[in-house]
């Protein structure tokens, strides 16, 4: 067995064992997987295709709402569920709850993929910073619109049904849902980045005009890539809705300045356009964030700002780029010594 395969098996085993070994850190580990998912999906367009979206958080928030509306709507009138003044008590059976979780999350993924096709058709004409700001606008508008729809609870947000059974096992379930989604996404991307399709989106990143001149229907590639990313983010959003139990539109669902920016920072930290970069970036970022938030309270945002500045100034290629330059042989790049080059010439 190759060293690479052993590494993968060890990591997978750690993923499965983690919540059982560190039950007190369940929520932390689940959020870690959420960060990995949003970072990997952001990199699909940002790193691999050269389209830096600041609006991926739109799919997270929309995933939350779609998941919630489907899960609740299957059994109760949504408008009454979200009415603050209702006196009736709505209770879900465990069967209804888990069906809602499954159907809602899948529905959220599909809805977000379709939304990405529509939003993409409108925004993929924009390039560079215009695309970034355009998609940010979509995310902000999304939050504002949802927060004014009374049927969705408006600014109150939505209180999800209480999870049935013991809370600790529910936390373990949520962890495995996030981890499972993350592993599936990672395996998918490992395969995906070796396909001709991925070569085409890389060509779009490197020179979109040339790619088009070579006969690549660029818009179609861009839409499909973003839709796939949105599918995974939407599912993650829906799982988050069930995890948080109560969420509101502006600061939890469409949280542009938190998760919406953090996902970009994770990718920049780890290294854009690589498979492992977003994963490593998400892990380091999340640990850094938790440590500063716990032990550096009051200065946490300053520490985070400093981290971002350091990444942008000193590690423009991220950690992966840094290591690739320092230790190219780790990446299977053969470095010829100066002497060898001379003989060759």
């Amino acid at each position: 067995m190759s060293r690479n395969a052993i590494l993968h098996i060890v990591l997978l085993a750690a993923t499965i064992a983690a919540p059982l070994l560190f039950p007190a850190y369940n929520a932390f580990l689940a959020t870690l997987w959420l960060f990995i998912i949003v970072a990997l999906t952001w990199d699909m367009t940002g790193g691999q295709m050269g389209y830096n979206s600041l609006g991926n958080i739109f799919f997270y928030g929309t995933g939350m709402y779609v998941g919630a509306v489907i899960a609740i709507g299957m059994y109760f009138p949504v408008g009454e569920w979200t009415d603050a003044a209702r006196s009736e008590l709505f209770l879900m059976s465990p069967g209804q709850y888990y069906t809602g979780l499954a159907v809602g999350s899948l529905g959220a993924g599909i809805f977000c993929a379709l939304a990405a096709l529509i939003i993409g058709a409108l925004t993929f004409g924009l390039r560079g910073p215009y695309f970034a700001i355009g998609t940010l606008g979509v995310a902000i508008a999304g939050g504002e619109i949802v927060s004014n729809i009374e049927w969705l609870g408006g600014g109150q947000g939505i209180s999800m049904p209480n999870p049935p059974g013991d809370f600790d096992s529910f936390k373990v379930l949520i962890y495995y849902l996030f981890a499972g989604l993350g592993v599936v996404l990672f395996i998918f991307l490992r395969w995906f980045y070796q396909t001709r399709f991925a070569a085409a989106i890389n060509a779009i990143r490197d020179d979109e005009e040339k790619a088009e001149a070579m006969g690549i229907h660029t818009l179609r590639y861009k839409l499909v890539t973003w839709a796939i990313a949105a599918f995974f983010v939407g599912i993650a959003g829906s799982i988050s809705a069930f995890q948080l139990i109560h969420f509101e539109p502006l600061e939890t669902a469409y949280q542009t300045i938190n998760l919406g920016i953090f996902m970009v920072v994770c990718v920049l930290l780890g290294g854009k356009g690589t498979l492992w970069g977003p994963v490593i970036g998400a892990v380091i970022f999340h640990v850094f964030k938790e440590v500063t938030w716990n032990y550096f309270l009051g200065g946490q945002w300053i520490a985070l700002g400093a981290l971002i500045v350091v990444i942008v100034v000193f590690f423009q290629g991220g950690l992966m780029g840094f290591f690739r330059r320092r230790f190219p042989e780790w990446f299977g790049v053969r470095v010829e010594t100066k002497g060898a080059t001379e003989t060759a010439s």
Binding site: A84, L89, F170, I245, F247, T252
Partner: peptide, 29 residues
Amino acid sequence: TKAIAPVTEKYHIPMVEAEGASRSLFNQG
């Protein structure tokens, strides 16, 4: 309070709160 109450509820931790007044807190059972 709406965000925290589900957590204390599931862990069966009594919470006496003084600053959450919305009626939507008191129809969740």
